[in-house]
Amino acid sequence: MELRQLYYFVKVAKREHVTKAAEELHVAQSAVSRQIHQLEEELGAKLFLQKGRNLQLTPVGTLFLKRAEVILADLERAVVEIQEFLDPEKGEVRLGFPHSLGISLIPEVVSAFRKQNPNVNFRFKQGMYPSLIQDVMKGDVDLAFVSPCPETHAHVTGQTVLTEELFAILPTNHPLSQEDSIDLIQLKDEPFVLFSEGYSLRPIVSDACKEAGFEPIIGFEGQETDTIRGLVAAGMGVSLLPEMALQGSGKLQPAKVRVKSPRVTRTIGLIYRSNEKLPLVAKAFQRYLLDFFACVEAKNRL
Rank of each mutant, 00 (worst) to 15 (best):
K251Y: 13
V12I: 05
N275F: 13
Q83P: 04
R202H: 05
R266I: 11
G213N: 06
I133C: 09
L231Y: 08
Q286K: 14
L55W: 04
E108Q: 12
R202K: 10
P279H: 01
V193Y: 03
A234V: 06
M128W: 01
V259S: 03
A13Q: 01
E197V: 15
E24Q: 12
L241N: 07
I204C: 08
P118R: 05
F293P: 02
I82E: 15
V161Y: 09
A234L: 11
P262C: 10
K115F: 06
Q50P: 04
G248E: 05
A73V: 11
T157G: 05
S147M: 08
T163M: 02
D140L: 14
E2K: 09
K90Q: 08
Y129C: 00
Q223Y: 11
G222P: 03
F113S: 03
Q159G: 10
V12A: 01
T172V: 09
L184F: 07
V264I: 07
T58Y: 01
T227L: 14
A208F: 06
L65I: 12
A112L: 12
A284Y: 02
L231M: 15
L290H: 06
P242Y: 07
S206I: 14
Q50D: 03
F85V: 01
A255E: 03
L241D: 05
I228L: 02
V141T: 07
K46L: 09
H153N: 05
E197P: 09
Y199Q: 12
R77P: 05
H17V: 05
D87R: 01
H37L: 13
Q126G: 14
Y8F: 15
V12Q: 01
T163H: 04
I169N: 02
N121Y: 08
S147G: 07
I103E: 06
D180G: 14
N173H: 14
L143G: 01
F9A: 00
A255V: 11
Q186W: 10
R202M: 07
E84T: 04
F214D: 06
V296A: 10
K51F: 14
L86E: 10
R258A: 13
Y288S: 01
D180P: 08
D142H: 15
E42Q: 13
F145R: 07
I71N: 04
K90R: 15
V232T: 04
G248T: 08
L3A: 12
P171Y: 04
R94S: 02
G127N: 07
L95P: 00
G235Y: 02
E24H: 09
P175Y: 05
M1L: 15
K125R: 15
H174I: 05
P279F: 08
L187C: 07
V80L: 11
G44L: 02
K90L: 09
Q50R: 13
T62S: 11
S249I: 13
F285Y: 00
Q134R: 13
Q83I: 06
S249D: 11
G158F: 01
E276D: 04
G198P: 03
K46M: 10
V296F: 13
E179F: 08
L302V: 15
V18G: 00
Y199K: 03
